[in-house]
Computed example of a mutant assay.
Amino acid sequence: MYKALRLNIERKINLTNEEWKNIVEKAEFIKLKKNEFLQIQDSNNSYEGFILKGSFKTYILNDNGTESVIFFSFENEWMCDLESFYHQKLTTYNIKALEDSEILVISKTNKTLLFEQVPKLIQFHIIMVEKANVAIQQRLLDVLNKKSKQRYLEFVERYPNKIDKINNRNLSSYLGVSHEFLSKIKKSF
């Protein structure tokens, strides 16, 4: 059932069947319907998760009640509210299913136990954190240095099979543009 997770991990490190068994025992399988939350902003429940099926948006709800979408996450990708998970602080973000989804999650406590039981997972963890930091840095650079149209085109190029799963409201929030401006961008292609 968790074949995609094992393949993802084993791209970076090899696992014995016993090590894999330890991982499976610490992971929790969660099914979410479209628009259900994995995590709610300012709560105490933060997980590291691997998406088996579906897609999610990670966003904040601003003081004026508007959403600012920070990331989209899709099948075979990891997602996490890093500060909340690693420092056990209140969650910063809402994480919501964009469609019926299945995800494997692990708590901070279980991840710490896994590091003791399967020390080579620390190497995998370092690779994951490096990748997350690069993605965050690239997202920041894109927002600061690229025009909305260019960010849209790069998103479509990166996720050609996912663009139809994201409604205009979420995509315009992610790009930092109005719905009307997004419509103009889409019409120009």
Rank of each mutant, 00 (worst) to 15 (best):
H125F: 12
S101V: 04
Q39D: 01
P160R: 13
L153N: 15
L175P: 07
E77F: 04
N167P: 12
L153S: 13
L182M: 01
K147V: 09
K111F: 14
S84W: 03
Q138W: 09
N145W: 09
I9G: 02
F124H: 13
S84V: 01
K184M: 07
N62Q: 15
K57P: 01
E25P: 08
R139A: 08
L113F: 10
M79K: 08
L90I: 09
Y47V: 00
S107M: 11
S46T: 15
K165D: 09
N110L: 03
E36K: 11
N62S: 15
A97I: 00
E75N: 14
S73D: 01
T66I: 08
V24T: 11
F74H: 06
F37Q: 11
L90A: 10
G49T: 05
R139W: 05
R158Y: 07
K96S: 00
R11A: 04
L182S: 00
S101M: 00
T92A: 03
E99C: 08
N44I: 14
T91F: 02
K111A: 10
K186P: 12
L38N: 09
K12C: 01
E28Q: 14
F74I: 04
M1N: 11
F29N: 13
E10D: 01
I60L: 02
K186N: 08
F71D: 02
N44G: 08
L175F: 08
Q138S: 12
I40W: 05
F189I: 14
V134G: 01
D63P: 09
K26M: 07
V134L: 12
V105G: 01
N168L: 10
K3G: 07
L90W: 08
I122M: 12
D100K: 15
K162A: 13
H125K: 07
S101Y: 05
A135V: 01
R139P: 03
I23A: 00
